[in-house]
């Protein structure tokens, strides 16, 4: 049985071997070790007293109120940022598919937010919304939108939305580039014959663009979701470790790397992984369906 497979599929196994080995060595083995640690009371400041604690670390997840708050914030970020990244990303990709003279230039400009180092981008945004010296206060007051300078991050919801703004600004090129590269793959003939058949622009979009773009949309949504599940830089730079804007990943960091409670930190990591996989399950499942057909 196996020999037969090797003869027929040997090339395929050889082709995936480097990738699979890399993932096993650099991700799966370390992750398995972390999984083991999550069942221990591993506190790095106290290395002599490490023993099994069963599900105690996991039970703590349900009683720790900061877990609930940081998860709630993370959920808010995921919903808002993924929605806007996909809508604006699709719009930008459709725009950039058209052939116009300065397309090269616009594409390069669109990539800029992503090319700016995250720290610099974050700090610049924070400076823009600085309560005293920020340009946002100056302009908004000049335009009459606000009557006096605002301390933007004091209001929890404003702070959350500001973080979303920075995240969408930074990640839009990513979603857009993935969608654009899939759009480019749709042959022009399809549109030509559709318009000969009298299909309008909207019809063409619904009947040709959307279905053929579906795999790209799946990948882009998944990527956007996973990125937003693991936000760190933007909320940290805007508001440090304030619980108003803190994400579950930041909580994970403070527990495992600041308080050095490694076992509990790993339990949080596993929680994040499970939630991310569950959220992505529907996309991935739809991928499988499409493949089976």
């Amino acid at each position: 049985m196996f020999r037969q497979h090797r003869a027929r599929y040997g090339d395929a196994y050889l082709m995936i071997a480097p990738f699979v080995l890399l993932i096993i060595l650099f991700v799966l083995i370390p992750f398995a070790l972390s999984l083991v640690y999550s069942f221990k009371n591993m506190v790095l400041t106290n290395p002599d007293d490490i023993h099994w604690v069963g599900f105690k670390n996991y039970a703590k997840l349900f009683t720790d109120p900061s877990i609930r708050r940081t998860l709630g914030n993370t959920g808010f970020y995921v919903v808002v940022t993924v929605l806007f990244e996909m809508l604006l990303g699709l719009a930008a990709a459709l725009l950039l598919r058209r052939n116009f003279r300065i397309r090269f230039l616009v594409l390069a400009v669109m990539i800029l937010p992503w090319a700016l180092p995250p720290v610099v981008g974050g700090v610049t945004w924070r400076w823009i919304f600085h309560p005293q010296y920020g340009i946002a206060n100056v302009l908004f007051e000049r335009w009459g939108w606000i009557s006096e300078y605002q301390l933007w991050t004091v209001n929890k919801w404003v702070a959350l939305l500001l973080v979303c703004l920075i995240v969408v600004w930074r990640n839009l090129p990513y979603a857009s580039l993935i969608l654009l590269s899939f759009l480019q793959q749709i042959p022009n003939d399809l549109y030509e014959s559709a318009s000969i058949d009298g299909a309008g622009k909207w019809q063409q979009f619904r009947r040709i663009t959307l279905p053929l773009l579906a795999p790209g949309i799946t990948i882009a949504i998944s990527m956007a979701t996973m990125t937003s599940m693991n936000l760190f830089d933007e909320p940290y730079i805007m508001n440090q470790f304030s619980l108003d804007t803190m994400t579950i990943t930041m909580k994970n960091y403070t527990v495992a790397f600041r308080d050095l409670k490694f076992g509990y930190g790993m339990a949080i990591s596993i929680l994040v992984t499970v939630i991310t996989l569950l959220v992505n399950y529907s996309y991935i499942k739809s991928m499988y369906k499409e493949e089976a057909s």
Partner: peptide, 10 residues
């Protein structure tokens, strides 16, 4: 889907 911190120390 794994957060970076889940693999970092091992």
């Amino acid at each position: 889907a794994l957060p970076g911190y889940a693999v970092m120390i091992p």
